[in-house]
């Protein structure tokens, strides 16, 4: 059974921030009987076993926590990680870069600068294992997805549309536009730590050369990014 805590109907950074902050606070002292919590753009799904934890008891717990503060202005979760991920933009790594530049009325270099300029927040993971929805980007990024589906983009593709970046962790079909690719792979089912990105994490993209892409050492990045987080 589940209780859905809704903070809004749309994707808005303040609404998503409330979801993420509330989830972190709830997770710090999770009531027994809660199976998992699932943050999304605008809501938190709290799945629980109603034979272990009564609906009313959980509802009261959630209401009490909700009333402790204004979650829309809450600081982001303390334990979130900050990633700097290398990206090769354009060419075979970003076949839709020219099209995106046209849509934005910019040249390709300006698109790259704009994309790498702002840190983005992992608003939620969904669609496929480890796929991250990142946002929110400036209004000039508010153009639609393609009307056709690209049958396959690789894991690590940098996909953009509707003021969001999508970072898939596996090869997927997609209608989003691919402007680049990162060698960083956030999901490995066989690894001790299968998922590297969590909702709430912050990501900044760093334009790199193809040579740097080829020489990318994920273990090195993880040593730097995960130190001090207790992860």
């Amino acid at each position: 059974m589940g209780i859905l805590v809704e903070f809004g109907a749309v994707y808005d950074p303040a609404i998503n921030n409330a979801v993420l902050a509330f989830d972190a606070s709830l997770g710090a002292d999770l009531p027994a009987g809660v199976i998992e919590t699932v943050p999304s753009f605008r809501s938190l799904l709290v799945r629980f076993d109603p034979l272990e934890l009564a609906f009313q008891a959980l509802e009261k717990h959630l209401q009490t926590l909700l009333s402790t503060r204004d979650w829309y202005t809450a600081p982001p979760p303390e334990n979130r990680r900050h990633w700097v991920l290398p990206v090769v933009y354009g060419g075979k790594f970003g076949p839709d870069l020219a099209e995106v530049a046209d849509l934005m009325g910019l040249n390709e270099d300006q698109v790259i600068t704009s994309h790498a300029e702002h840190a983005l927040t992992v608003a939620m993971l969904g669609f496929s294992p480890g796929l991250a929805y990142l946002g929110q980007m400036p209004k000039i990024w508010d153009f639609p997805r393609r009307t056709t589906i690209n049958p396959r983009v690789p894991a690590g593709a940098i996909l953009v549309a509707v003021r969001q970046t999508v970072l898939p962790a596996t090869d997927i079909p997609t209608g989003w536009r691919q402007i680049g690719q990162t060698p960083f792979l956030s999901f490995d089912a066989r690894a001790a730590r299968p998922f590297l990105l969590s909702p709430g994490d912050e990501i900044r993209f760093e334009p790199v050369s193809q040579a740097a892409f080829a020489a990318f050492d994920q273990d090195n990045l993880l040593r730097e990014s995960l130190q001090g987080t207790g992860a």
Binding site: I35, E36, T37, L125, F127, P129, G130, L131, F195, S198
Partner: peptide, 9 residues
Amino acid sequence: RVGFLRYGV
């Protein structure tokens, strides 16, 4: 698999 919905599984 239970508990991985937050990671999209």
